[in-house]
């Protein structure tokens, strides 16, 4: 039991020493919001948001289990927002609300309003097919289709009718692979199965597949958790580049990653959005006791 704790602390310290800014070990005894307080601290609104969520609750198992609780959060244009928090706190659940992937789970119910460009995505007449083209998603485990690299990229544009002929498709495939930084590695083997690539390449293939349909928002659920540090660095660079054109919401377990790639960070805890604010402030100067516990490694 004690051993376990020590090793955990050590991991956190290692991470701290690993390039990024040292963990805030400030001892200036500032007043923090106490642990039991659950209302969101910080500025959850942004000006002219791309997506905006109000009073979002999610229930699983036909209402038996409430997974997230009254979440209010905006996602700005051309920003990367990171979502952090201990396992099981509802980050993925929240992320999956944003493109209605939760619809596919039996017994899952979402209440509240989520809008994209001021249009409610849970409205009665909203079709999820164009919504998911508008809000793309990259998953934790790379999941290329068991088809050729080319077909992996071309599939989305084809079903949405974004390309009319082979030339256009070729162009879009090349462009998407270039933007995902994968073109040089795969240009000679586009007809080979996407599942034959390395883990990092597969994840970049999935990102290329997502951007091939030219979405407005990209959701990423722990996209680097199955990757080695080099592949992770490549993907982080890629995210940095993509934010020129897209709003990106990324769930991550690595606080280094959050601080490297994101402009804003939201901290979730047991289904509540505890604190949200500029990434620097969250990591250097958290306002909530729970946030501080988490980023200093005293929790999860």
């Amino acid at each position: 039991m004690r051993l376990l704790k020590v090793s955990k602390m050590q991991t956190v310290m290692d991470k701290g020493g690993n390039g990024g800014p040292p963990m805030p070990l400030k001892k200036m005894r500032k007043e923090l919001v106490p642990r039991k307080e659950r209302a969101t601290i910080g500025q959850f609104e942004v000006e002219n948001p791309r997506m905006s969520c109000r009073n979002v609750d999610v229930y699983y198992n036909h209402g038996e289990k409430k997974a997230i609780n009254n979440i209010n959060l905006d996602i700005g244009r051309n920003e990367v927002i990171a979502m952090i928090g201990p396992s099981g706190c509802g980050k993925s659940t929240f992320l999956r609300c944003l493109n209605r992937m939760n619809d596919t789970i039996d017994g899952c119910r979402v209440t509240g309003t989520i809008t994209i460009d001021n249009k409610n995505i849970y409205g009665k007449d909203v079709d999820v097919v164009p919504l998911r083209a508008q809000v793309g998603m990259v998953f934790q485990k790379p999941n290329p289709f068991p088809k050729s690299i080319y077909d992996n990229i071309a599939y989305g544009p084809k079903i949405h009718g974004l390309v009319q002929n082979r030339d256009e498709t070729d162009g879009l495939v090349e462009q998407s692979l270039r933007r995902a930084g994968l073109w040089k590695e795969v240009k000679d083997r586009l007809d080979q199965p996407g599942t034959g690539l390395s883990g990092g390449q597969q994840q970049r293939l999935c990102i290329a597949r997502t951007i091939a349909v030219n979405p407005e928002v990209i959701l990423m659920d722990e996209p680097c958790s199955a990757l080695d540090p080099i592949a992770t660095a490549i993907i982080e660079d890629l995210i940095d580049e993509l934010k020129q054109d897209y709003a990106i919401a990324i769930v991550t377990h690595s606080m280094q990653q959050a601080s490297r790639v994101s402009q804003r960070t939201a901290y979730f805890h047991l289904g509540d959005l505890i604190e949200v604010g500029p990434t620097d402030q969250i990591f250097l100067n958290p306002l909530h006791q729970l946030t501080e516990d988490y980023i200093t490694g005293r929790f999860g």
Binding site: M101, T104, G136, K141, I159, C206, V213
Partner: peptide, 14 residues
Amino acid sequence: PPSIREAALGIGAS
């Protein structure tokens, strides 16, 4: 595998 279904739905397949 469910990941294949998610991939297809996530890209906007019906």
